[in-house]
Design a binder for these strands. Structure first.
Lengths: 197, 197
DNA sequence: TCCCGAAATTATCTTTTGTTAACGTTGCAA
DNA sequence: TTGCAACGTTAACAAAAGATAATTTCGGGA
């Protein structure tokens, strides 16, 4: 229930809705547990899931034409995760969302959320906050692709999310940086050599 | 006034608000004209501008540490443009928004929009639509960076936005693809040679 | 029409990345 | 405890991109 408290506080900070008045919203949420390596959303799935991550890391990835995986993003505790293809584009998900560790979520169906928002517009700032946060993060990652080299992106990831990098296999980090695991290994070596000088 | 009609139709489709009831919203919008190469938003600016592009192309870019420009995105007629640093993060804009051609906009201040939404929540779907569209586009670009090579990104851009590529100098296209103009020129040459075979 | 300056191309060289395969390392399961 | 499979590293080579500079092309203004 710690998660609900966190979200109640967020909602209060955003819009002044008192925790006591959040019943209609949280009644429609479902706690979900995932084992390590369990898929949360599969390719082709149509469910419009939105969830707050209480614990663990989820990786969103797609399968390229050549069969390789490409990791789009990682989400961890304190963040929201959403099947953007189904929610935004109303298309079957082209992405797979899979737990890297045991994961605990608080989940709501986006369609249900929309219904609740029709009768409870006071929760609307939560949706806005969620969308803006996702957008800000996407734009920041996009910015890093046009302004930085793979090595610079990796250095920044290390300095900003050292804990995350340590919890996630390198091959997923590499893919998220837009390079191969072999290249990331070489970058790490170059950094180590430079660091010794 | 064609732009207002377009937006009124969009708002009606999204939420059923009749064009006659959009007065409070459009009263607060301002038409803006920009000359080719004129800056719309400068670096460090704090104005929270949101605009619908009626005509022309706007380029959002930042100046890298080494002094080079990096183009983050291009927006053209029929799209929204927004100073995301100021609107989302409430920070001075790290980006410059500049007209590539003569541009006509319909502009509103985001703070003013928020006030209007407080008393006219029926316009709320417009904000949502705008945010989701921006998010979908960002995620799509992000996806292309982790799944495709520069050449593949350029090919896709050509097939999806041939008109745009023809209206924008190559050096800005290159920067948006995350490569140098020299590299883009080589990609074009490789494509031409392959195409001849 | 001519001329200038910006943009694009080309050339040369260096650096980085991709590809493929081999080699250690490690953690988990039988 | 052993064995295996996945992961990371390394190696060797090919392909692509970066940096810099020279050259050509092109478009707009005088």
């Amino acid at each position: 229930m710690k998660t609900i408290n966190t979200l109640q506080k967020l909602l209060f900070d955003l819009s002044g809705v008192l925790p006591a008045d959040t019943g209609p919203l949280f009644e429609m949420t479902t706690p979900v547990s995932l084992e390590a390596n369990e898929a949360y959303i599969r390719e082709g799935e149509n469910s419009r899931r939105l969830a707050f991550i209480e614990q663990g890391i989820i990786r969103a990835y797609t399968i390229k034409e050549n069969g390789d995986e490409a990791t789009l993003l990682l989400r961890w505790e304190g963040q929201f995760i959403a099947s953007h293809d189904t929610i935004i584009n109303r298309q079957p998900s082209r992405f797979i969302y899979r737990a890297l560790e045991p994961v605990k979520l608080l989940q709501i169906d986006y369609g249900v959320l929309e219904e609740i928002l029709k009768t409870h517009p006071e929760y609307e700032p939560l949706r806005n906050f969620f969308l803006m946060k996702m957008l800000a993060e996407s734009l920041k990652m996009l910015e890093s692709f046009v302004t930085q080299s793979p090595e610079e992106r990796y250095r920044e990831l290390l300095s900003e999310r050292f804990d995350l990098v340590n919890r996630v296999p390198d091959k997923y980090i590499a893919s998220m940086l837009g390079i191969t695991p072999v290249s990331l290994s070489r970058i790490r070596k170059r950094m180590y050599i430079k660091g010794k000088k």
